[in-house]
Each structure stands twice: as structure tokens, then as C-alpha cells.
Amino acid sequence: MKYFEDFAVGEREQFGSYSVTAEEVAEFAGKYDPQPFHLSDEAAAKTHFGRIAASGWHTCSMTMAMLVAHMKDDALASRGAAGIDELRWLKPVYPGDTLRCETAVLELRPSRSRPDIGSVRSEMKVYNQNDEAVMRFVSIALIARRTD
């Protein structure tokens, strides 16, 4: 199990692989972000996207799926999150792309009000198969502290 005390500022990790499909892009957009350029190639062709593109919120969701899979693999003592800062969608994500994640720990802060947890601020970057950054944000994860 990886606890708060096991993190170090500057620590970097790479993980994940998520294949983006046209079906999933359309399904997500239909439910949560039904803008025309997320639903049809014809509508997207009239925009700067040029073709159907995933919603930025879908990109966040795909990133979360990779992050949770990674936390399970590493047996992380996660206690949720306090939020994210500085969310930026840098490039469109298209069906056929394969996404991956890179993180870098920016700051570690033990909680003053809850001695059983600490916050880990990390920069998350998501890349496509061409190593182009498509999204960036700073996460504030809450991680259990060792009790022994």
C-alpha cells in the first residue's frame, strides 16, 4: 500500500492506455455534452475540429478511468480528492486516439484538521499516441497517512 509518506516532491509516473472510440465519443456527448461537433462528422467539419472530437469532459472521464486503474495496480491509500486546478484542454481528442497519463508531484501537505490524511498536489498531463499533450490539470489528492 502506498501512503502519503511514500510520495516525494518531483516524483514522476507514467501510466495508462485508453483507446478512444467513435461510439463512446457519441454516447458520452449524447448524454452529457450534446454539441454538434461531438456528435457528427458533418457538423464538426464546419468547425476548427474538422471531424468529430471528444468532449473535454469525456477526456477528463477517460483520464479518471486510467487513474483509478493505476491506483488499484499500485494499491494507493486514496481517500478521494479535494479538487482540481488549472484544467486546460490543449488539443482535440479524436476517435482512434490512444491516451496515456504522466504525473509529477508538486507539493505535499499534511492535513492540519485531519491527522490521518495529507494532500498530494500533482500535475497531470494526458498525451495522445503522437506524444502531443491534449489535457493538463493540477490534482489535489487526499491520501491516508501511516498510523504506525
Rank of each mutant, 00 (worst) to 15 (best):
R121E: 13
E86L: 11
I140G: 04
P95G: 03
A144F: 03
Y94I: 02
S111D: 02
I117H: 03
K125Q: 13
V93C: 01
A133H: 04
S113A: 12
D73F: 10
L67E: 13
I140D: 09
R112T: 12
I117A: 05
Y127I: 10
M64P: 01
K125E: 08
G83P: 01
L67Q: 13
N128L: 08
A133G: 03
D97A: 06
L108T: 04
L87V: 10
K125T: 15
A77D: 08
V68Q: 09
M124Q: 11
V126E: 00
P110A: 15
A81E: 06
M135T: 05
V134Y: 03
R100E: 04
V138F: 10
M124E: 08
D74A: 15
R109C: 10
M124V: 14
P92F: 01
H70Q: 13
H70K: 09
E132N: 09
V134F: 06
R114T: 12
A69T: 07
R109F: 11
K91Y: 06
D116W: 08
D97M: 07
D73E: 15
V138W: 07
V120D: 03
D116R: 11
V93Q: 02
L99T: 00
R88P: 03
S78W: 02
D85T: 07
A144L: 10
V105H: 05
S113T: 11
V134D: 00
D97T: 04
R88K: 14
M71T: 07
K72I: 12
A77E: 13
E107A: 14
A82D: 14
C101G: 07
A81S: 15
N128D: 15
S122A: 15
L87T: 03
D85G: 07
E86C: 11
T98G: 04
M64K: 08
C101K: 00
V134M: 03
A104G: 11
A144E: 12
A141W: 09
P110N: 06
L90W: 05
P95T: 01
R112G: 13
G118Q: 03
L99N: 00
V134N: 01
L76Q: 08
R114L: 14
L67C: 13
G80V: 02
L142P: 00
A104V: 15
V105R: 02
K72W: 10
H70C: 14
L106W: 08
V138T: 11
P115M: 12
Y127M: 09
T98K: 06
I84Q: 07
L87W: 04
T98P: 00
R100M: 09
V68M: 14
L99W: 01
P92L: 02
G83F: 12
R109P: 00
P95R: 03
I84L: 14
V120F: 08
S139R: 06
S119H: 14
L108N: 02
D74C: 15
E123K: 11
M135E: 07
D131A: 14
L87D: 01
N128H: 05
G83I: 05
R112C: 08
